[in-house]
């Protein structure tokens, strides 16, 4: 195995495009090293992208945040502005693993892992984030909900790299939240995850919302019906019931070692209610 740590995006893309064997991108390594250890992957080339400046930056241009793909959970959590505007995205990333893992695990890595249970992804989908990708043919953008195409599979070509995620500007009365259900209090993979971003008007009526669910299908889902259940309401009991029902209806989970179909379907609704209330309160 060859290890390279290029300092420019162009060099990284060139390395990926130039290899005939299997290449893997190394960011935080919190999944890749586990796979290496378990002999689940045996790449010929490892491209460490952490020395590429653009991937390590957080910028804010007129309220539009761009977060470099190699920003870690710990770094995002320490950024005062992102946390104020996108608390749900930050809590999604910060829920991944331990304090130690937070020091390494990156926002781009969690996305590229394409796990249906990835914690930051429902929050990113709710936030309507855009994935910026670089490849030999230049740059392109992908809506975050289209990025993963199945468990472990992304829409990236072999020689493409995720550069950053960008976020739309926010209104004043807007916020987001993310919750997951796990058996313990930390360290587990989400059994169900839910991210909601919403905006309310001066009267407390929810004017816009995006609801996303994780770990209830082959990839994280955007659930427009769930959003529709709360738009135009002040999150009264009936709206929350409708939200929960829509969230549960959208689920097509599997039975596995982490949870059952029935459990995931039920809890998706429960979490949707809880997350909506948090986001709504934050937005007020």
């Amino acid at each position: 195995m060859q290890y390279e740590a290029p300092e420019t995006l162009a060099a990284a893309v060139e390395l990926l495009a130039g290899t005939s064997g299997q290449a893997r991108i190394l960011a935080g390594g919190t999944d890749l090293l586990v796979q290496l250890h378990a002999d689940m992957t045996d790449p010929d080339l490892l491209v460490d992208i952490k020395k590429i400046q653009e991937l390590r930056e957080i910028t804010n241009v007129d309220g539009r945040f761009t977060i470099g793909a190699a920003i870690t959970g710990a770094e995002l959590g320490e950024h005062p502005d992102v946390k104020k505007i996108w608390p749900g995205v930050v809590e999604g990333l910060e829920l991944i693993g331990s304090t130690q893992v937070q020091g390494r695990a990156t926002i781009g890595g969690n996305l590229c892992n394409a796990s249906p249970a990835a914690d930051v992804v429902p929050a990113l989908i709710a936030a309507d984030a855009i994935v910026h990708v670089a490849g030999p043919a230049g740059r392109r953008q992908i809506a975050v909900e289209e990025f993963a195409i199945g468990p472990g599979k992304t829409s990236l070509a072999k020689d493409e790299i995720v550069v950053s995620l960008s976020f739309p500007p926010r209104g004043e009365r807007a916020s987001d939240a993310y919750l997951r259900f796990i058996p313990r209090t930390e360290m587990d993979i989400a059994v169900v995850g839910c991210g909601i971003s919403l905006e309310r008007d001066a009267h407390g009526i929810c004017t816009q919302a995006r609801v996303a669910l994780g770990a209830v299908a082959a990839r994280a889902l955007l659930v427009p019906a769930a959003a529709a259940a709360i738009i135009g309401t002040s999150l009264d009991a009936a709206a929350l019931d409708n939200l929960a029902a829509a969230a549960s209806t959208a689920c097509s989970p599997i039975d596995d070692k982490r949870g059952t179909i029935e459990f995931r379907t039920d809890v998706a609704g429960v979490l949707a209610r809880r997350v909506a209330k948090i986001a709504y309160d934050r937005a007020g």
């Binding site: 290890y3 740590a5 190394l26 935080g28 390594g29 919190t30 090293l33 586990v34 250890h37 490892l46 460490d48 952490k50 870690t72 710990a74 331990s98 304090t99 130690q100 893992v101 020091g103 390494r104």
Partner: peptide, 19 residues
Amino acid sequence: CSVVMDGRLVCSCLVLGVE
């Protein structure tokens, strides 16, 4: 295996030696 690398707490099992 916890260690601190450049001021960050990490698991040394999840960092490559070359890093």
